[in-house]
Amino acid sequence: MMYALNFVLWALAAMAIGLLFMGISRKLTARLQRRYGPPFWQSFIDVIKAFSRKSISHNFIMDLCALMGLAGLLAAAMYVPMGGILPFPSDSPLILILYFMPIGYLGMAVSVSASGNPLASIGIGRALTLMLGYEIPFAIVVMSFISNYGTTNILSIMQAQAGGIENWHIIKMPFGFLASLLALEAMTGKKPFDVMIAPAEIASGPMVELSGKFLGLAFLQYSVAVFVETGLLTALFLGGGATVWEFVLKQFIVYMVLTLFSEIYARYRVEQAVRFLWIYAGGLAVIQLALNMYMK
């Protein structure tokens, strides 16, 4: 019973943190664009508004997979150690997180594909192609950790960074960090890798058929994805955090860096994005793996 309560609280916290980051990011973006921008709590208002609206569902698959998308990412969020804390006893296995995350993306993919809108299908096609681009470099970075520590448990990797900044993997594994940062830029759908949304090209792609509660679910799914993805980078490269606040602050810095990068780059075409990720992120990841294996 306690674990169930923990699960609910953790899920709410993941969504709230993600939405807060999204709101502040919108404000930051607005200021860069010489606009005033919405208040930082606007993302919360948007979700409440979306859930209060009437939704158009095309079929049962669309309903089911929209929930599956959120469930997959929430499952991944359960293994992200906020300041070393987890909702239930676990070693926080990285492999499990990497397994749950695509369930979330695939849930959304099937859901919007079921709508039958060609623009949504093109967006999903692009998103899945892009996944090939960022998952391979990130998987190679994970292999670097395995080669170093012989484990994929995030808690163990976090403990190995204890003792000061000099022990953080951002210092010890800089190439792996850069590769992960590039992969994360793509994971969060930030430019230059926002091909799956691309308003000028495919009219926001997957979002085009999402109304009311479906749009609310998509917002929540993205907020949890932001929590998980920034959480992974924080735990793996920035020493995690001794407290929840420290961990969330580091996550926040990571997300703001991603936002700033996003504002100065134009959008790649999908094949250009995949090529870039394989060549540069993949190259950096391979260098890191080779260094780790050589220095072992």
Binding site: T29, L32, Q33, R35, K191, A200
Partner: peptide
């Protein structure tokens, strides 16, 4: 042109 390539910040500025 900026917005079409995704550079919304440049467009707004």
């Amino acid at each position: 042109l900026s917005a079409m390539t995704g550079l919304y910040s440049t467009m707004y500025r």
